[in-house]
Design a protein around this nucleic acid. Structure first.
Lengths: 248, 248
DNA sequence: ACCGGACTTCCACCCGGTGAAAGGACTGGT
DNA sequence: ACCAGTCCTTTCACCGGGTGGAAGTCCGGT
């Protein structure tokens, strides 16, 4: 288009990679071209280069997905690998002690990004898995991260409106703000079937060396479980992880 | 250089990404330019684009490492994520039962690529972590994968020569071939301080729907542990994981 | 204060990237 | 079996973004 300057090759290529996400782990050529607003031949050329090099792979049905080379590169990202490694023994302890699912999440933009997940023996159904995203207002980890993030993020989310997942989801900004105040006071957040009917969670903040909240660790359990009684355990685990982050 | 045609932009950019690996998770501009054989200004431009977009991040000391966006992309690669998810409950069971470290690895080129690792309570020191690579001739998982890979790979490795890690490492091709024959017969492989003094492992193959070996699961323990007694447990776990791969 | 190494910016030049068009392949419906 | 529609692949004349040597800046070590 004459009015719009052509994007650089680098940005075009990266825009192809950026089209892959948890909602669309596989895509056709046409879908990628549409999402990147690139002509088919251009998208086709980029995909050819990426699949030849092993960064993407082409499935028998012609769709594309992330390949081994990107997976391997992803394993090199230390921001979460170190945190995960530090956190894992405490999360395993927590899972052993409570027999429930345990998760670790970090704030990423306007969502909670799950960077570690250990399914419990009783394996309550959660939407979360490593790499998965959770809303900030409806989950334990999300509330912990939102409480620490400051009022600007809350405002921005409020403007967009909060999505209701169940009849228990808190979608009124004032009510949520008060809820988050309590989270800050008590260093623990609950989600009582606010995300998924039948599932509750209790989360606590993991802090870095200057006390800033860098992650949240949570227990996810069936709603029949008395999660108030699990609050102490998750806070203890979060404290242990926090201490580890400060030792390094 | 006039005699050598200029590489495409796409290949140059990808060559920058390809310089990151487990040995060099962080690098300076100069190191990247040297490894990619790109002029400094060119490498600098690519790095600027990649860091602006969140694919790489620049550390306070000026070095670069893989960023969140590549980490997230990496989590989308299904080849190992699904296998990991399938395997994790069995690996956790194995770890609970034995209290030792448990690993899952796949064949990648001429190495065993660790795609999952659960540290044991007794946490024997291993070189392995997720994304890490292990030699095929000296580790339990490596032998399982090499045994299944056919004689061509063994020949190719023998030509290159086997590296000795400890005085117990098997580096004679004939002796290794007989060892692998036993692995195929018994569906279990041992490494008795062949990789690391003080560490032993026992591994068993995970098979796909057509019986082909797609991964190996292993227990890694201190050499004082009687790992022969753990062989049945790891074979059971491998069978369970194999059954799961066939149900999907 | 000085120096060396690493990094950043500039800009005249050029060659690799471009996409409309055409052709091929595949699939589903009749 | 045939046909239409959709998706994918290839071509090639054109052009604009990419290029890297040189110069400048910054920073850490002596």
């Amino acid at each position: 288009m004459a009015a719009e300057p052509r994007r650089s090759v680098v940005r075009r290529l990266l825009s192809v990679l950026a089209t892959f996400d948890t909602m669309t782990p596989t895509q056709s050529l046409t879908e990628i071209a549409a999402r990147t607003e690139l002509p088919l031949p251009t998208a086709h050329r980029f995909l050819a280069e990426l699949t030849t090099g092993g960064w993407l792979e082409r499935l028998p049905d012609g769709r594309y997905r992330v390949g081994l080379r990107l997976w391997k590169l992803g394993t090199l990202a230390p921001s979460y690998r170190n945190l995960r490694e530090l956190a894992l023994p405490y999360m395993q302890d927590l899972q052993h002690a409570t027999r429930e699912s345990v998760q670790l999440a970090v704030l990423d933009g306007r969502t909670a990004l799950c960077v570690e997940n250990i399914n419990g023996v009783r394996s309550v159904s959660t939407m979360s898995r490593i790499g998965g995203r959770l809303p900030l207002h409806a989950t334990g980890t999300g509330k912990v991260l939102l409480a620490a993030a400051g009022t600007e993020l809350l405002k921005a989310l409020a403007e967009k409106g909060f999505r209701r997942f169940t009849r228990y989801t808190i979608i009124e900004p004032g009510r949520l703000a008060r809820n988050l105040e309590a989270v800050r006071d008590e260093q623990v957040a609950f989600s009582r079937e606010e995300m998924t009917l039948g599932a509750c969670s209790v989360a606590s903040p993991v802090t870095g060396e200057s006390g800033e909240v860098i992650a949240a660790v949570s227990i996810v359990a069936h709603s029949s479980v008395d999660i108030d009684r699990l609050a102490f355990a998750v806070r203890t685990a979060a404290s242990g992880i926090s201490r580890q982050t400060r030792l390094l």
